[in-house]
Amino acid sequence: MDPRFMWETLGKLVEGVPLLFQLVTVSLAIGFVLAVLVALARLSPLAPLSRAAAGYVFFFRGTPLLVQVFLIYYGLSQFPEIRASFLWPFLRQPYWCAILAFTLNTAAYGSEIIRGGIQSVPWGQIEAGRAAGMSGWLLMRRITLPIALRQALPAYGNEMILMVKATSLASIITLMEVTGIAHKIISETYRAVEVFVVAGSIYLLINFLLTRAVKQVEWWLSPHLRDAPGAAVKEEAALVH
């Protein structure tokens, strides 16, 4: 272990962090919206819609992410129709292909998490919403989705960590994010252990911060589970009497 080499490596690897952040945030943001839509489609009473959503989830959860990336990045170029279309300027760039693959992938996993959240909303809440005169989209927007998303947040946090790790696959289609740079340094210097320690630390730090952020949001969203100010004191007082 050579501290100076590791310090230099850290400097080079940090240059890949902005790209990593872009890939993670863009895929997670679009993926989340898509995940909600897919979950709603999956739970819809319309059989074709529900079946299409199930098929989508089956495909993206049953195949490795790397195949999905390759299918989009290399595979789509097989069709002259796509090469001639207005989408080609996007689809021939590894950046957009990676984002497309990551988005579709995280949407499939996320939709199952959100579906679980929606299905765990207590029936009484929905009944109360109906009694208050809400129905359809209004009920969904005001009652079902907020409770479902709060319920789903811890599991969604895990999915976010998986996404941070998944961005490393972008390096295989030439994008130089942290793992890509690490691979380049290792194959130039053959000092695998030192580079691994530095690159691994970067990922661990990002995932640690992400976990803390999700915990914080969870705390904000669940004031009803926290004791009211002074509740503990009152309880103690009650025990004394």
Binding site: I161, K165, A166, T167, S168, L169, S171, I172, T179, A182, H183, I186, S187, Y190, A192, V193, F196, A199, G200, Y203, L204, N207, F208
Partner: peptide, 20 residues
Amino acid sequence: VLRGIPELLVIYLLFFGGSG
């Protein structure tokens, strides 16, 4: 550690570092 870092990095570590 192993749940927080990409699998690809672990593979590179063993592939390049293992023979070393």
